Computed example of a mutant assay.
Amino acid sequence: MNYQIHPDAIKENLVPDTLTKQQIGAVYATEADLLNIALFGVTAQQWRNENSTLQGNSATTLICIS
């Protein structure tokens, strides 16, 4: 449920109607990276590069993050 708040806020406040689908995707990715840096100190790509042997988050971890 909390996950949907972020994309909705981006759509309502940061995505003008004049952008292409590719540009819209870049806006969402930039905002996701901003949150990852604020929360974890790294972008998702940096985390993946540094932790390539680890699996994704468990449901429990995602609930805690929320």
Rank of each mutant, 00 (worst) to 15 (best):
M1E: 08
M1I: 13
M1C: 11
M1Y: 15
N2I: 14
Y3M: 10
Y3A: 15
Q4R: 10
Q4W: 11
I5R: 09
I5M: 10
I5Q: 10
P7I: 05
D8T: 11
D8A: 14
D8Q: 12
D8R: 14
A9P: 00
I10K: 02
I10Y: 01
I10C: 01
K11Y: 06
K11L: 13
E12C: 09
E12Y: 07
N13D: 03
N13Y: 04
N13H: 11
N13P: 04
L14E: 07
L14H: 09
L14M: 14
L14W: 09
V15A: 06
V15L: 02
V15S: 01
V15R: 04
D17V: 15
D17S: 15
D17Y: 11
D17P: 12
T18S: 12
T18A: 07
T18D: 14
T18N: 14
L19F: 05
T20V: 13
T20G: 02
Q22H: 12
Q22K: 12
Q22L: 15
Q22V: 15
Q23P: 01
Q23E: 15
I24G: 04
I24Y: 03
I24M: 12
G25S: 04
A26N: 09
A26I: 06
V27K: 03
V27Y: 01
A29G: 06
A29C: 03
T30F: 04
E31F: 01
A32I: 02
A32D: 04
D33R: 03
D33G: 04
D33A: 08
L34V: 07
L34I: 04
L34Y: 03
L34F: 10
L35D: 04
L35P: 00
L35F: 05
L35R: 01
N36P: 00
N36S: 13
I37Y: 00
A38K: 13
L39R: 02
L39A: 12
L39V: 05
L39I: 08
F40T: 07
G41F: 06
V42S: 07
V42T: 10
V42K: 10
T43S: 08
T43F: 05
T43N: 07
Q45L: 11
Q45I: 10
Q45V: 11
Q45W: 01
Q46N: 13
Q46L: 02
Q46V: 08
W47F: 14
W47Q: 12
R48Q: 00
R48G: 00
R48S: 00
R48H: 02
E50I: 15
E50D: 14
E50H: 13
E50L: 14
N51K: 11
S52F: 04
S52G: 08
S52M: 06
T53L: 05
T53R: 10
G56P: 06
G56K: 09
N57W: 02
N57L: 07
N57K: 07
S58Y: 03
S58Q: 00
S58L: 08
T60K: 12
T60L: 13
T60V: 11
T61N: 03
T61A: 12
L62C: 09
L62F: 02
I63V: 07
I63S: 12
C64M: 12
C64S: 05
C64E: 08
I65C: 06
I65A: 05
I65P: 01
S66G: 14
